[in-house]
């Protein structure tokens, strides 16, 4: 599904990603862990098409298309979803209205008719239950005045509505208490099928107790330096990242 080959990216002239390789197949869950400043969020942002980053080399193949050549909206329409670490507050635009526009723009791109109001409401109700989010929240201005947990739940709700092929969760666990974490993780798990894939970007292991990865990658200094099974996350939790750093200094 996704093949990242030798990806290099910089921001403000500073090289962050320095030749990153990653392959994700349908049905898989990949965790990307690493110390602060390793490039985890940069990777997530680059995949979604944030324009602050300059791609200085490499390629990203997504279902046969060069992702890096697509606009952010076309990436989303092709089926890439980024759950933001810091969801943006947009006063005056309700989540419902926002999602209605988004769902129909994606449908248009795929050659489908827009959903009529009853169908949209039905879809929304179904997804609301899935991620345990209240309708009153969705009527309010997008993320405005939402708690940290509500914002992250809203991200997963949007993911449920858009049914992406590849979801990238950028530090979705940050700022969540244990109950909110469980609800968010449950939502992600319920949405998981053999047809789609998830990349979980996280600093801590605790989210991976709920969203169990098939592979754990350690990102350090702009490259993936270690890949292992889910147990690698536990090892990292126990030993910290210093041994990775030490290993890579000697290499």
């Amino acid at each position: 599904m996704l093949k990242i080959n030798n990806l290099q990216a910089s921001v403000d002239g500073k090289q962050i990603l320095k030749g990153l390789h990653l392959e994700v197949k349908a049905g898989e869950v990949h965790a990307i862990m690493g110390p602060n400043g390793a490039g985890k969020s940069t990777l997530a942002s680059v995949l979604a098409g944030r324009e602050d980053y300059e791609i200085t080399g490499g390629s990203v193949d997504f279902l046969g298309k060069e992702l890096l050549e697509l606009s952010p909206e076309d990436r989303a329409r092709e089926g890439v979803f980024l759950a933001f670490q810091y969801p943006v507050e947009i006063p005056g635009v309700s989540t419902i209205n926002f999602m209605k526009t988004a769902v129909n723009e994606v449908r248009k791109y795929r050659g489908l008719d827009p959903l009529d109001a009853p169908s949209f409401l039905r879809l929304m109700k179904e997804k609301m239950e899935l991620v345990e989010i209240d309708q009153s929240l969705l009527k309010r201005s997008l993320n405005e005045g939402f708690s940290g947990g509500e914002k992250k739940r809203n991200e997963i709700f949007q993911m449920a509505m858009l049914e992406p092929k590849l979801a990238v969760l950028d530090e979705t666990d940050s700022g969540l208490d244990i109950d909110a974490l469980r609800i968010v993780a449950n939502g992600v798990n319920k949405l998981k099928t053999s047809e789609n894939a998830v990349i979980v970007v996280t600093h801590y292991q605790r989210l991976l107790d709920y969203i169990v990865p098939d592979f754990v990658h350690v990102l350090y200094n702009g490259r993936i330096v270690k890949t292992g099974p889910k147990e690698l996350a536990l090892e990292l939790e126990e030993k910290g990242y210093d041994w990775i750093k030490a290993e890579n200094v000697t290499v």
């Binding site: 098409g49 989303a76 969801p87 947009i90 635009v93 926002f98 999602m99 723009e105 791109y109 949007q158």
Partner: peptide, 18 residues
């Protein structure tokens, strides 16, 4: 805000309009 909307599949012009 524009990027957030675009990342959900909303085109740039439509996002600005919203």
């Amino acid at each position: 805000a524009l990027f957030y909307m675009r990342a959900r599949g909303i085109g740039e012009e439509q996002a600005k309009a919203l």
